[in-house]
Design a protein around this nucleic acid. Structure first.
Lengths: 203, 203
DNA sequence: GTTTAGTTTAACCAAATGGTTAAACCAGAT
DNA sequence: ATCTGGTTTAACCATTTGGTTAAACTAAAC
């Protein structure tokens, strides 16, 4: 495997990522990807065999950017408020570094839900330790009572949605000021856990 | 315009809605829509001229299901906590009645952001009365200090995301139990404003 | 019955699409 | 120089796609 081969393959992956993110699986055209990679279209098939397989490579890479360490946090014995901070910070950090991922996954979620569902399940995500902990804290009277399922969904919502809705937020909320939006996203890291903890903290 | 014509047009719209929601604009095939409507494909062009125009009709209808009365709420003089309840309840009710809308809009948001941005702006959505109100309440010391932009985004996130992420939630959180998910969605109407108000209410 | 306007059909069209093929190219080894 | 294996190319392929066309159909009006 020569150095030149890695370069062509990487060029394809990079171009495919750009096009698939912008156009989705159905909207992306192999010729377009080849053009962006600066190669002959037949090479896409030489290296990746089919459009499906190329897409799979990009998509799997995207998913793997967010799933792995969430599990460790879910299983740990850390205090609830610390967990909430870790959970939200982990997600927001991962999305800040890879801002295309949430929109990409949500886009594919409507096109082919089973694939994403299987990948998330195969990653072994198990929310029950966290759910049990929220229940215990509620029963002990340590927090304002909250249904753990709603708490999880609220946390996910506030982490993911702002990245998915970027164009709307920039244009409607921030008057087309992308810098304001960036500043806003940086603040999310602190504001989201703060908001969530305030919602359940006894005073 | 005969009764028969309305029927063919409606059959097309109904079938197109189903297919566009499932497949998106790029993934939907005119022959497939025709098959589902039980008509000859040429009729799609006879009635709607092109795939774009047919899609436009479906999409505009979807957007109009959620935008209009949010404006009235934003401009009113109601107390902040009441507004939060109205805002979240309005959204959740609209999505409960039209569960395809959030996913459909999010899907199109990645494909063609400018269209959605323009539609939302043309609807005259102006968040500033609400933003000003949150600022006043914060300065008066009536609520826990919260940045109004983050508050708005949190509210939108918690209203919209659970509908977009339906397949993930049903399969990962609710063990494929669609009835549990439905129950969960019904609870959202009360849980979301409750959570939000708890987060900013002084105790 | 004929005429008319609207609706529908089957056949057709040109372009686009993902993919295939075989030859040319390249560089290292002999 | 030739051989070899890997890479790349241009041409080609069959199918699909959104759209067009002209004829057939339908029902109401006269």
């Amino acid at each position: 495997m020569s150095n030149k081969e890695i370069s062509t393959e990487q060029a394809i992956l990079k171009a495919a990522k750009n096009i698939f993110i912008r156009k989705g699986m159905e909207g992306a055209r192999m010729q377009e990807i080849a053009d962006e990679a600066g190669i002959n279209k037949a090479l896409l098939h030489y290296y990746f065999r089919s459009k499906d397989k190329l897409f799979e490579a990009i998509f799997t890479d995207a998913i793997l950017k967010i799933v792995p360490n969430i599990m460790e946090m879910m299983k740990s014995d850390l205090p609830l408020f610390t967990k909430i901070e870790l959970f939200t910070n982990n997600y927001i950090d991962a999305f800040t570094e890879n801002p295309f991922v949430p929109g990409f996954i949500m886009h594919e979620l409507s096109r082919d839900p089973s694939k994403i569902v299987n990948m998330v399940k195969n990653a072994g995500i198990n929310p029950h330790p966290f759910i049990d902990q929220v229940k215990r804290e509620t029963e002990s009277g340590n927090i304002i009572p909250v249904d753990p399922y709603h708490l999880i969904v609220n946390m996910l919502s506030m982490c993911i949605f702002p990245f998915v809705a970027t164009p709307i937020l920039i244009n409607v909320l921030f008057n087309k000021n992308a810098d304001s939006y960036k500043e806003f996203i940086l603040q999310r890291r602190k504001e989201v856990p703060h908001f969530i903890i305030n919602a359940i903290k006894k005073k």
